[in-house]
C-alpha cells in the first residue's frame, strides 16, 4: 500500500527533516504517527499525499513509483487519497454541500449521485442542518467535520489526517475517532498524525514514531506505553 525506501527530505538548503527513512504500511492498516512538535510528522504526511517531493529515495503508493509517474497519473493517485488537512482548507465562499461535493465533481460524477453521497456523509458527521451553510459561520469542530466528510466522500483507499483532534474538545475528538475506526473496519488504510498520546493509547493501533528523521515502526503488542514516554511536553 505505502512503501518508503531510504527517503530524505529537506526544504531548500535547510537541514534534513527526514534522513533515510524507510517504512511499509499494509493495506487496511491503521497507523498513528507520533513525535514531538517539529519532528516532521506533517512533512512525512505531505510526502504521503504527494504535496512534497522527497529530496531522495523512493516512494510507492498502491504499488506504483510516484516519482516516475506522469503528472496526470499522479493526479489519479491523489484521487484515491483522502486528506484531512491540519488547517482544514475549506473553500470559503462555497457551501458545506459544495465543499464536500468537490472531489466527486472533479471525478465527473453525476449530480444525482453527488447529492446522495454528500447528503449521507454530511448527516453522518452530524451536520445535516448546516448543509447549505457557509463554512466561515461554523465552529472549528464543525469545520473539521466538513473537512473529514470531504476527505471521505470519494471513498479513498488511503485516509491521511494531520492532527485531526487538535482543535476539538474531548467529546467530539472521541466521536471523530469512532468515525476513523469505522472507516478502518470498512477496509480503508488510515494514517493519523497526532501528539495526543492518550488518544494513541486508547486507539491501540500500531504506532509510527518519528525520531531524528527516522521512523520506528512499533506494533501494538510491543507495549507502546514505554516507548512513548518522555515525549509529553
Amino acid at each position: 500500500m505505502v512503501r518508503f525506501e531510504d527517503v530524505t527530505l529537506r526544504y531548500g538548503q535547510g537541514p534534513e527533516i527526514l534522513t533515510g527513512l524507510s517504512l511499509h504500511l499494509e493495506p487496511g492498516s491503521f497507523h498513528c504517527l507520533v513525535g514531538p512538535s517539529g519532528a516532521g510528522k506533517s512533512s512525512l504526511l505531505k510526502l504521503l499525499y504527494l504535496e512534497q517531493r522527497p529530496s531522495s529515495g523512493r516512494i510507492s503508493l498502491f504499488g506504483r513509483d510516484v516519482i516516475r509517474l506522469s503528472r496526470d497519473a499522479r493526479a489519479g493517485l491523489r484521487r484515491r487519497i483522502g486528506v484531512v488537512f491540519q488547517d482544514f482548507r475549506l473553500i470559503e465562499h462555497l457551501s458545506v454541500y459544495d465543499n464536500v461535493a468537490l472531489p466527486l465533481r472533479l471525478a465527473g460524477e453525476r449530480e444525482r449521485e453527488i447529492r446522495r453521497k454528500v447528503e449521507e456523509l454530511v448527516a453522518w458527521v452530524g451536520l445535516a442542518a448546516q448543509l447549505q451553510a457557509d463554512p466561515r459561520t461554523l465552529s472549528g469542530g464543525q469545520q473539521q467535520r466538513v473537512a473529514i466528510a470531504r476527505a471521505l466522500v470519494g471513498r479513498p483507499n488511503l485516509l491521511v489526517a494531520d492532527e485531526p483532534t487538535g482543535s476539538l474538545d474531548d467529546r467530539i475528538g472521541n466521536r471523530l475517532m469512532h468515525l476513523f475506526q469505522e472507516l478502518h473496519r470498512n477496509g480503508t488504510t488510515v494514517v493519523l498524525a497526532t501528539h495526543n498520546l492518550a488518544l494513541v493509547e486508547r486507539l491501540g493501533h500500531p504506532v509510527l514514531r518519528l525520531h531524528e528523521g527516522q521512523v520506528l515502526q512499533e506494533n501494538k503488542d510491543q507495549g507502546s506505553h514505554d516507548l512513548l514516554q518522555g515525549e509529553l511536553p
Binding site: L50, D72, A75, R78, R79, I81, V83, R89, I91, L106
Partner: peptide, 13 residues
C-alpha cells in the same frame, strides 16, 4: 489556495 487544494484533491492541470 484553491488551486493548490484542487491539485491535492487530484484535479488534473
Amino acid at each position: 489556495p484553491v488551486i493548490e487544494l484542487l491539485h491535492l484533491m487530484g484535479a488534473r492541470d
